[in-house]
Design a binder for these strands. Structure first.
Lengths: 255, 255
DNA sequence: TTTTAAAGTGTAAAAAACACACTAAGTAGA
DNA sequence: TCTACTTAGTGTGTTTTTTACACTTTAAAA
């Protein structure tokens, strides 16, 4: 295996063969939490018969001169065409025999890779509004699937997805990441829906609003929704400056 | 430090030159939170003059056939002689130019390594009682230092330490990891002290105990401390089974 | 017997959580 | 223009949790 390029190639174009990033791209549409998956079809090279057809997360090796966060952003961009998206590193997976299922090994062999070479992968998740994404980008066969309908994935991607989901939920409970899913001005019902859908719970509207009222960084505007076929909701903005100043260094423990 | 060699050796003895683990070993002694640091001394090979003398965290490359968690446990064992210690992966560091300070580059060069080759390092922290550790293990010059007195470290280890500390505190607030620091039977004052020292706060004794009383998995025994020169405290045990059964899937958010 | 050191305990007030049901405001379609 | 439909918005009483706060008890050591 090639030694790291202390050589003549420009480092930014050389893949690091030992380390990759995988992105768990969560999509939200006010109804369900979905995850972006890529079709993987393996056909027999001789007969052309489909050997299997399943789904993977999206990932890629990092470039030798590329930051991990940048690699994750690149992978996300390649699949969705989106930039400056919320991305969070959540865990690194590196079991020596991560790839053990026969389909996965056959797939790697068919792609000229050695299934016995362990690749460390750094897991990222991102969170975005489903309708920001134009599918079929660059002709890859990509689909949204509700997270609770994903029963199996290629490689160890199901485990990665599960850990990402747990990390996302933890994060959502403690930090204001839901605003990535909202337009600048939003309604409280929209905000509430984010928590309900992602955490998989239902919340009482009045109690939710009481809680919001205590948060000085959720600022009500003198402005209403327009063009909806029902009572228009008041619009709010999230004031990040207020938030940074006022977030209580929450000290409360559950042991 | 053993140089990794590629070649005919069995995989379990071959280092992966691209990936390492670093361990932030936190030590607790009921007074302070400390971190275990290793002396790094660089002497000029010709004159023998000390060029610098500073401190590092402890880490090592992983073996090709070794799990990340296992590598971290090995590093911890090599330094402390302890096994089965609480260890938590918290973040992976992989900036392409992680190593940029001249001292660090000189150090790597002197050890036959290329300072321009980026190494991805997976960060782990562990938490143990200071007095479980016999220093000078294997003759390395190792010392405890209170975390709030650490002002600089070699490489990017100060950043790694800071992130580990933040992760430890988050974890302590939400999960029962403090019991790693206690004997099986402990007093409530000891438990309280863990929170006070690690979180850097002070808590009211009565309110703390009211909170404990609500947790069914903290079980008071009919047994008292012995041999202390004051009123002996009642002893408690942590019932992990009760905990797993009763921990509320805490749903409460701070946005 | 006294001193010393930490253990252990109660109460009142404020804040937050929780459970719960009706009215208001706009658009769409008859 | 009236009616139906849909979502927005609001208040109260109860329970639980948080917070602030000071004195008595128990043991060993002097």
């Amino acid at each position: 295996m090639a030694k790291a390029s202390s050589g003549a190639l420009s480092a930014s174009k050389v893949y690091n063969n030992y380390v990759s990033v995988d992105c768990v791209i969560f999509g939200f549409d006010f109804t369900r939490l979905q995850v972006l998956l890529v079709d993987r079809v393996m056909t027999d090279p001789e007969s052309g018969v489909v050997r299997f057809n399943d789904l993977t997360l999206t990932g890629n090796h990092i470039y030798e001169d590329e930051d991990l966060d940048a690699a994750a952003a690149r992978v996300l961009f390649d699949l969705t065409g989106l930039q400056d998206i919320y991305l969070e590193q959540f865990r690194t997976f590196g079991a020596p025999h991560r790839i053990s299922k026969e389909n996965d090994r056959a797939w790697l062999r068919a792609n000229g890779r050695n299934p016995d070479q362990r690749i460390i992968t750094v897991g990222y998740y991102s969170l975005l509004a489903t309708d920001n994404v134009t599918l079929e980008w660059k002709g890859r066969n990509v689909q949204w699937m509700p997270v609770d309908e994903v029963k199996s994935l290629a490689f160890d991607h199901l485990e990665i997805l599960e850990e990402a989901l747990a990390a996302l939920r933890r994060k959502l409970l403690h930090e204001p990441i839901g605003f990535a899913l909202l337009p600048e001005k939003f309604t409280l019902s929209q905000l509430q829906r984010i928590y309900e859908v992602i955490l998989g719970v239902s919340l009482d509207k009045r109690n939710f609003r009481k809680k919001i009222a205590r948060m000085k960084y959720l600022v009500p505007l003198d402005e209403k929704q327009k063009g909806v076929a029902h009572k228009p909701a008041r619009l709010y903005v999230f004031d990040r400056e207020q938030y940074e100043a006022n977030k209580k260094d929450l000290l409360d423990f559950a042991i």
